[in-house]
Design a protein around this nucleic acid. Structure first.
Lengths: 250, 250
DNA sequence: CTCTGTGAACTTGTTCACAGCG
DNA sequence: CGCTGTGAACAAGTTCACAGAG
């Protein structure tokens, strides 16, 4: 697993017992499906209605064998000699990712980053709706942010339970994050996206994904360092990256 | 591999030819070093000066064998029967990651996210300084954001070259990202952190890391979907995540 | 004859388990 | 004797290369 890649615990992903609708996907595959989906939507907008593994792979920045293997895990939705029907593939991926269900998200912490996340168009366009905002600072409570009023963190339990929110986003300072996570979990949240630079511990059955902006820069720094010192043929693009192979433009 | 996982091309990382100072680290190890570093700093602040692999592993959310293997790639900086000297380990990791050198960063795109990034304290505290802001919108040019004036994107080449900026952050809409990347590369930038939801193509020798906020939610959605349908023992925490193993609280 | 789907080879990453240093 | 450092076993992920469907 990418950013980041890569890191994190074993990533058991998902064990078997799967019906036809819930194939048992490798973690690495799950992490790439959203990227395929994005490329497919782009193609639809461009008026395309069919694509080859080669074409979609190029658009998503992976190689075609990998793409075919990923898609084959969903079942066979391609036609040999022709390619994939884009609409059908989109439906299939959205179904597997559970994007056909509308998902409400609670956002905790309305500092700089929280404000940006609250207004991030990319969430809404992908079927996620931020339905509640929380902050511990009384000065921020009541403030309207992108059409939603900020509530005090004390309201978290009630709201999350009432609105059956299953996904929480933590954008608080690190020192507050564990406590917020505990409250989210207690209220019934089972998936957390954590932007605070700290490790959260949560009960089994709760998924946490972490995005640490500074970590990404530090990884780039490592590669810079190596390039600068001319050692090895440093050039690697890892976890979640997107360089196409062998292009030399500039 | 995995958050990134992590997606992306082969991830050659770094080939050999390494001197003692530039060990050839596996990508997965590089991705974890920043997390170790953060935990170590936290321990220093708490007044600790020594830690065991077990202790640091717990703090960083990995298992201790992995941690020891990761650190062993840097050379032997532990004492058997005792543990690691925190200060020494911090120095070593910072050196390997190239954090001893001050790195200026250019940020392009000052929408919601760009504003948040410009003010993100986590960058500065990790040795990265945002030294220039760019936007294409004339209405935003000249605006002061966290002490820096926004310049027009036309100034990018000059500024990046003059200030010898090696790292660029793209926080523009997707449609502008490729053009911005091209300009960054042309001006000499060799590492790019891309927040735009699109694949960038860059020449060999340039590293790109991608952070896509919506992708993270979609991955969580997949696990939600499986949990809701009770299929398999869904619970996996992948790329860049941070749940401790086997804790059952709440 | 083209392009998918997939076994098999290979590479990378993780975990185990223990030798041996301090 | 505790804890690091590491070979060896294992697991996951990637790539190759080709059979065979359309």
């Amino acid at each position: 697993m990418s950013q980041q890649r890569s890191g994190g615990e074993a990533g058991l992903s998902t064990r078997n017992g799967a019906g036809p609708d819930f194939p048992d996907l490798p973690d690495a595959t799950v992490a790439r499906l959203p990227e395929y989906l994005r490329s497919l939507h782009q193609m639809l907008e461009a008026g395309q209605d069919t694509t080859s593994s080669e074409g979609l792979a190029a658009a998503a920045g992976v190689n075609s064998a990998k793409l075919r293997k990923d898609l084959s895990h969903l079942g066979s939705y391609g036609t040999r000699g022709v390619g994939y029907d884009i609409t059908r593939l989109v439906e299939q991926i959205e179904h597997v990712l559970g994007l056909t269900i509308h998902r409400g998200v609670a956002l905790v912490g309305l500092g700089n980053l929280g404000h940006a996340l609250a207004g991030y168009a990319g969430f809404a366009s992908r079927g996620f709706e931020i339905v509640a905002l929380f902050d511990a600072d009384p000065a921020r409570v009541g403030e309207m942010v992108h059409g939603l009023a900020v509530r005090h963190i004390d309201q978290l339990a009630v709201t999350v339970t009432q609105e059956r929110i299953a996904i929480g986003v933590i954008a608080t300072p690190a020192r507050a994050a564990q406590s917020v996570a505990d409250q989210l979990v207690a209220a019934g949240v089972t998936s957390i996206l954590n932007f605070a630079p700290c490790v959260l511990s949560v009960p089994e059955g709760v998924d946490v994904r972490k995005v640490d902006l500074a970590v990404e820069l530090q990884i780039l720094s490592f590669h810079e360092h190596r390039k600068a010192n001319g050692n090895g043929q440093a050039n690697g693009v890892a976890r979640g990256s997107a360089a196409r192979p062998g292009e030399v433009a500039a």
